[in-house]
Design a protein around this nucleic acid. Structure first.
Lengths: 179, 179
DNA sequence: TTTTTATACGTAAATTTTGACATATGACAG
DNA sequence: CTGTCATATGTCAAAATTTACGTATAAAAA
């Protein structure tokens, strides 16, 4: 039982879902491809943590709807009492910033612009999620509210940094020698 | 040539360094164990991107000091012009928050307290780094300044969220039924 | 009408990352 | 004087993750 397995159980503790949709929904929290999700769900099922029923669809391919079992819920509750790993972030951009003096200012600015657009998309996505969730759900889950807020705090800080960094890079280019 | 390889070249573009110290220095940007660093440095050397000389020490074990070659610098400069991967963050805490309703409030609060201490340590480390760097270096590298600021923006946002989340959890516990 | 996109599942190979095992020196604490 | 810690390098196995290969349906776009 690795962290991704618990992540899947965590999603399933809210509602039963297909492997395909679990894969889509877990992306913001723990990026994983379907080639990792499907075998893991089979493994969880063989361990008795989840079970599935086949749902036949006419407009789309048939799917397997997984639901969490009592054993799965117990495993989840126990996991919540265990020490929590520190977060891990890997960002190619920071490695490039570290040696930015080696490259052209235009390339660095282009990289920062692309990243800015990425963060803006993220923020828009978050805010639309927030709206639709508030509309659909009368008594929202505290956990989901906390997570949406975490995302917003984080992306806004990244967004501000990117804009600040772009200004710094431009200022540095215009005034390379202050004497 | 994967991202970690470029990360090592990026560090080496500032100064020659040992595998051990490169391993320590790259942690904040791209976590990696020495078992990953040493073979990669050997691979980079066989590719002609870096070279090393043995430095004999009396008080400590001997070490290999790696330096970047012209070929390495060219590879680094080319890398700066290529598209940049999106950042990847994996945080067990957010998966736990998602199903926090399944556990005890005390366990969740304990998790958040531990995380709070972690972020406070990070912030302290960053600010001490900032000071020592400013003192040691008369003309600081723009890249390093940008990165230290990025870290500070990010950790401060995480810190604020954690404190906010703890207040939310406490409020939610005290007033579970508003009617 | 052909191609692309989204849905939906699956496996196999390659890459990346972690954890364990291994050795060695000097300092420092118990 | 014995164990632990920081330094320093290395290999090997296992686990986690990504990329590629593979099938299939239906809608939408080109």
């Amino acid at each position: 039982m690795n962290t991704l397995s618990y992540g899947l159980l965590s999603l399933l503790s809210h509602a039963a879902d297909s492997g395909y949709d679990l894969m889509l929904k877990i992306q913001p929290f723990w990026p994983a491809k379907h080639s990792q999700i499907y075998p893991l769900l089979a493994q969880l099922e063989s361990g008795g943590y989840v079970q599935h029923k086949l749902v036949v669809q006419t407009d789309k391919p048939d799917k397997k709807i997984y639901s969490i079992t009592d054993k799965g819920l117990n495993a989840l509750r126990n996991w919540l009492t265990l020490p929590t790993d520190e977060p891990v972030t890997r960002d190619e951009l920071v490695l490039k910033i570290f040696c930015m003096e080696q490259g052209d200012t235009a390339d660095i600015l282009h990289m920062l612009e692309t990243r800015l657009a990425y963060y803006q998309d993220q923020l828009q996505w978050l805010q639309s999620k927030k709206e639709t969730y508030a509309q659909l759900n009368p008594s929202p889950s505290l956990g989901i509210i906390l997570l949406m807020q975490k995302g917003e705090f984080s992306v806004k800080a990244d967004l501000e940094w990117t804009q600040w960094a772009m200004r710094q890079v431009i200022a540095h280019e215009k005034e390379p020698n202050p004497d």
